[in-house]
């Protein structure tokens, strides 16, 4: 692998194969924690099929939008983004199936519904991993950089895409939250923690989530750190970016918990509590996505 990462003349097919390899590696890297979680195997057969269908369908536009951002190749057109999304989803399915077979979790004696169910849940996170793997494991020294729209150099292109960029930020936060949530939501610990916490714990958890999210992006100088403007007061950025980000993380948490049937038959206060618990990692995922992607 190392020899391939080095700069080289772009020969079409070889470059594409390297991309596939990175995607597969990303699917493994990001998918393995879920592939080795018992609750997800079980969800494969007891999850309500209409919700599973929704999850599998929602993943398609999500992958296309994400592909447009990070891409297997540097994509600019919708068709290219669709192609890359399809490749990532395909890789996710293949890698999930292979690993589940390797782990002895899929056997030929099982009903088709169980096999497909198990693979399709895993394929969602693995396909996001495949796209991210392509982007994060890739060589950024090549010309063109990594499409970082923050580096638009103040030309009119930046101005044109202004509101688009804002939606983009929120979208990235949703993807980051979704990714961490998919890993954590199926475990029983999330509901157990929400039962152990009192309302006071929950209040502190909200404040802590927002504070960590804000600090992650603005205080800690990671790669791609967002800069606060010197002119505007600090709370402007909190209201414009961090709070909407937290609401996005909250909404994604709620959606994922509902998908996995963790909210069924519960009172509103219990639903909110579980969502707050899951939003804690979700908020960190959202903040990380803003920095990394």
């Amino acid at each position: 692998m190392e020899s391939r990462i080095g700069r080289e003349a772009p020969e079409g097919s070889r470059k594409f194969l390297v991309g596939i390899g990175r995607g597969a590696a990303g699917a493994l890297l990001f998918g393995l924690p879920m592939l080795m979680t018992m609750e997800l195997w079980q969800l494969g057969f007891y999850m309500e099929r209409s919700r599973l269908l929704l999850l599998v369908l929602v993943n398609i536009p999500l992958l296309i939008a994400l592909a447009h951002r990070v891409g297997f190749e540097k994509t600019y057109t919708l068709a290219q983004a669709c192609r890359d999304a399809a490749i990532a989803y395909g890789l996710g399915i293949v890698m999930s199936a292979l690993i589940l077979v390797l782990l002895g979790d899929i056997k030929t004696s099982m009903p088709m519904s169980e096999i497909i169910g198990k693979i399709s849940i895993q394929a969602v996170a693995a396909s996001i991993g495949a796209l991210l793997g392509r982007s994060q494991l890739a060589d950024h020294t090549g010309s063109g950089g990594d499409q970082d729209d923050d580096g638009g150099k103040g030309e009119d292109a930046v101005r044109d895409r202004m509101s688009g960029n804002y939606g983009h930020e929120l979208f990235l936060m949703a993807v980051g939250a979704l990714f961490l949530n998919l890993n954590i939501a199926p475990t029983e610990e999330i509901i157990l923690i929400s039962y152990k916490m009192t309302a006071w714990h929950a209040l502190f958890a909200i404040v802590a989530s927002i504070a960590i999210m804000h600090a992650f992006v603005y205080a800690v100088a990671f790669k791609g750190t967002h800069q606060m403007s010197a002119a505007a007061p600090r709370w402007h950025v909190l209201v414009r970016f961090t709070l909407p980000g937290y609401v996005v993380a909250m909404a994604v948490s709620f959606f994922v918990l509902w998908l996995f049937g963790r909210l069924d038959g519960k009172a509103v206060s219990q639903m909110v509590m579980s969502s707050i618990v899951l939003s804690f990692p979700g908020a960190i995922g959202a903040a990380a996505a803003r920095l990394i992607l």
Binding site: D148, D150, G151, G152, K153, G154, V158, R159, M162, S163, N165, Y166, E169, L170, T225, H226, Q227, M228, S229, A232, H236, V237, V239, R240, F241, L243, P244, Y246, V247
Partner: peptide, 22 residues
């Protein structure tokens, strides 16, 4: 520091609306 990060730009009203609702 990138020369023009998203936070530096003049905020669109949609951003404030989203922020306030959030």
């Amino acid at each position: 520091p990138s020369p023009s990060s998203i936070e530096d730009r003049e905020a669109h009203w949609v951003e404030w609306a989203t922020g306030c609702v959030s």
